[in-house]
Design a protein around this nucleic acid. Structure first.
Lengths: 110, 110
DNA sequence: TCTATTAATCGTAATATTGCAATGTATAAA
DNA sequence: TTTATACATTGCAATATTACGATTAATAGA
């Protein structure tokens, strides 16, 4: 149906899925990588950097902002975006609980 | 359009997005967590464990298997699934390059 | 005030994802 | 051979996502 049955999973499972979904598109990966690389605010040039139209970039930025992974500050006519490092490390902790499950488990069978 | 323009991104960005997309659904998160928790093959009871219909689970398993994150072995009439720990740690390395970008970056601006 | 600039929002088309009933396939047991 | 069991595949309906043209909103500068 295109609709995930979130109510049958734990909050933790749904939260992991939400963050992962944000990283599930190369444009959002590229946006985040660019924000890390310049290590400061980006005012405006994201549309030139990534090769997508302005409304499309704006939409991706909105999703990332909604998740709290980036911050946006208005500076005159442009908006400056950067990583929210605090929320980023919180996200990493949640993802690590999931990704590091292989630690101390031996290859069981198969 | 619903179609990601993968050709305008790097292979690395697309690979990160592919793995992330796999974790972008709570059912797949739950399946993987269950496989880790029992730390051995699961033959059959995944449909009972997760609360979705058999064809739905089968479809999610297919995606995870296609990415190489799980292995499936036929045992009689049932099929046993488990984590492919080797591929899992390779996936973790790729994801870490992305997730750990915040290390040694100071909170620049905003 | 008028105009240019920048980015958000709206509307919409194209494609992808999710979920499941129905069906198919393969193996084991009777 | 027949039947039961377990899982994959098919087909389809409902919803989500992606992309972008057109428009709107907000600010800066002339």
């Amino acid at each position: 149906m295109g609709l995930a049955k979130t109510e049958m999973f734990t909050d933790q499972q749904n939260e992991i899925a939400l963050f992962a979904k944000a990283f599930g598109h190369p444009a959002r990966v590229a946006i985040l990588q660019h924000l890390f690389n310049i290590n400061s605010c980006v005012c405006g040039d994201l549309v030139n950097e990534i090769g997508l139209a302005q409304p499309t970039i704006s939409q991706h930025l909105k999703e990332l902002k909604h998740l709290g992974l980036i911050k946006g500050n208005v500076e005159g006519t442009s908006v400056c975006y950067c990583i929210d490092t605090k929320n980023w490390s919180q996200m990493k902790q949640i993802m690590s609980l999931f990704l590091d499950q292989d630690i101390e488990k031996q290859d069981g069978c198969c």
